[in-house]
């Protein structure tokens, strides 16, 4: 029995106005847009953690998001990361108080790096996830950092930015490859290697997952600690139990419990 730290599998749910969007295809869910039902189902399937990404753009955003986190945290007892438009310490405080364990900051961290520093100081590094969207540079010499949901290129270089995030106090890096996002052709191995080589905090791979072998590849070829995916889980293309069993067969340490097997 391997007893070392397990590689985490993290479903990501997009939230708009307090509802799950992009659809979830669990056959047994009466209301697929209900974040509590979706979170509960993922927990039963053996997800190691959940990420909620809020894409609401209204003024009431904070309240609906806080209500949602509170409801989920009342029923689902695995780590919850919440991100999407979090701009201030007070935003962080509301969401953490509602029951989130980690806050992910992306554009706001680039615009105002002291937010990461302050957040880590007040809530602890383990609460602050530095989320980064990056894309290959035109001359392919590295990767540029993008903000505003990948719509705006910044002058930041990925490899430099993730090191700065670690120095500022981020406890984890959530790295999304824009080149791979939505392609389902596999994770961006080269980009992940470049990042895990320079930071000493956990790195979550995101963007490109299409099949089980992609997860085997990312954990075999890189030092990534966790892998995140959205659509392949939502639409049932990949079953969590098959994924974890295949990873285990490939000697990748994953969390498989009796309680997480019986529900699929």
């Amino acid at each position: 029995m391997i007893k070392i730290l397990k590689k985490r599998i993290i479903p990501c749910l997009d939230i708009k106005d307090g509802r799950v969007v992009k659809g979830i295809n669990f056959l047994d869910l009466v209301d697929a847009g209900d974040p509590v039902a979706s979170a509960r189902r993922y927990n039963e399937m053996g997800a190691d953690e959940l990420v909620f990404l809020d894409i609401t753009a209204t003024k009431e955003k904070r309240k609906t998001l806080t209500d949602l986190v509170e409801k989920v945290a009342k029923e689902v007892f695995i780590p919850l990361t919440v991100g999407g438009g979090i701009k201030s310490i007070s935003d962080m405080q509301y969401i953490l108080r509602a029951g989130a364990d980690k806050i992910s900051v992306n554009s706001a961290a680039v615009r105002n790096p002291s937010l990461v520093k302050e957040g880590a100081k007040i809530f602890g590094s383990q609460c602050i996830v530095g989320a980064v969207d990056a894309s290959l540079k035109d001359d392919e010499s590295g990767w540029d950092v993008y903000i505003n949901g990948g719509s705006k290129k910044t002058s930041r270089d990925l490899v430099e930015w993730v090191q700065e995030l670690e120095e500022l106090g981020a406890g984890e890096i959530l790295l999304t490859s824009m080149n791979r996002d939505g392609t389902k052709i596999g994770f961006d191995i080269e980009m992940l290697r470049a990042v895990t080589n320079v930071v000493n905090i956990p790195v979550i791979a995101s963007g490109g997952a299409g099949k089980i072998e992609d997860f085997v590849e990312v954990f075999t070829k890189t030092d990534t600690d966790a892998a995140l995916a959205a659509s392949i889980f939502h639409f049932g293309e990949v079953a969590m139990s098959d994924l974890k069993n295949t990873l285990a067969e490939n000697n990748i340490p994953v969390r498989i419990e009796e309680s997480s097997d019986k529900n699929e």
Binding site: M1, K3, L5, D48
Partner: peptide, 26 residues
């Protein structure tokens, strides 16, 4: 290894105890 130690790890029971009742082995 990386610090903080963050994530899922298995327990190795050293001394049996009522606290571990009805739990899987690890």
């Amino acid at each position: 290894l990386k610090i903080p130690h963050m994530g899922w790890n298995e327990l190795e029971i050293i001394k049996d105890d009522n606290l571990f009742k009805d739990l899987p082995d690890n």
